[in-house]
Amino acid sequence: MSMLSVKNLTVFYENAIAINKLSISVNKDEIVGVIGPNSAGKTTLMNTISGLMLDTKLKEDRRGGIRISIFGSVEYLDENITNLWPDKRVRKGIALCRERHPVFGESDVEENLKISGYLSSKEQVKESLSLVYDTFPKLLTMRRRKAGLMSGGEQQMLAIGIALMARPRLLLLDEPLLGLSPNIQAQLVEAIQKIKQQTNMTILITEQFARPLIPIIDRGYVIENGMFAFGGSKDELYDNPDVRKAYFGVDYDEE
């Protein structure tokens, strides 16, 4: 059953086209990767699915900035949510962990997590907190640390934790491995897999460099210049020489 399906999505920033007739679908209990280089439209796609694009559009309209036009549809559990505001989408179970780990810098780790758990009941918050601390034990040791003073990797863990606290059914991760060392990347990928196993969340994840992700994703889409370039199962992606060369950093002849 298709949980999320994006149909013919087209997004313009003024006259520049960021996403061009892109259709993707995510089935329940899958981890789906969206792989593409810079300027492929990954972040635009994520923001459109989570609804943040509507907010950006409103703000730009208000100050006479660039005009954003969105066409096509985003459907979630057979309901058209293209024009639904981001907060409503979170209530329906879509949570986005944005690019470059934005956290509430002035609050400490636990406060950060609790802010995001505001919609849940007390028991649920407790449960989610223990899930987050279980997944990222490092966060537990720095519960009272100000989030703004933590390292990039720790902030990324916290950012994912914040998204988890909203108890999503569909978790969107926008470049979670950006700017992290291979070691931390491996830890995060492991953690994402663990989250998947423990909660049965459906996960959509974008990345530029796909190698660390390949063990955990079920399917993947390769997008370039806002357009669908290639798609298929993990093995199909890994076996395609062009994809391998561009996004896995291995040459076909190497082996």
């Binding site: 149909k7 013919n8 007739k21 100050r63 900035g65 036009s69 066409f71 096509g72």
Partner: peptide
């Protein structure tokens, strides 16, 4: 909120027209 001058300047310097959105045909 953008202010009077940027608004007027934009209206003066730019043409607006309706175009068919490529990819927008369902």
């Amino acid at each position: 909120p953008e202010g009077l001058f940027p608004y007027l300047a934009r209206k003066y310097q730019q043409i607006e027209r309706w175009v068919e959105a490529p990819g927008g045909i369902s």
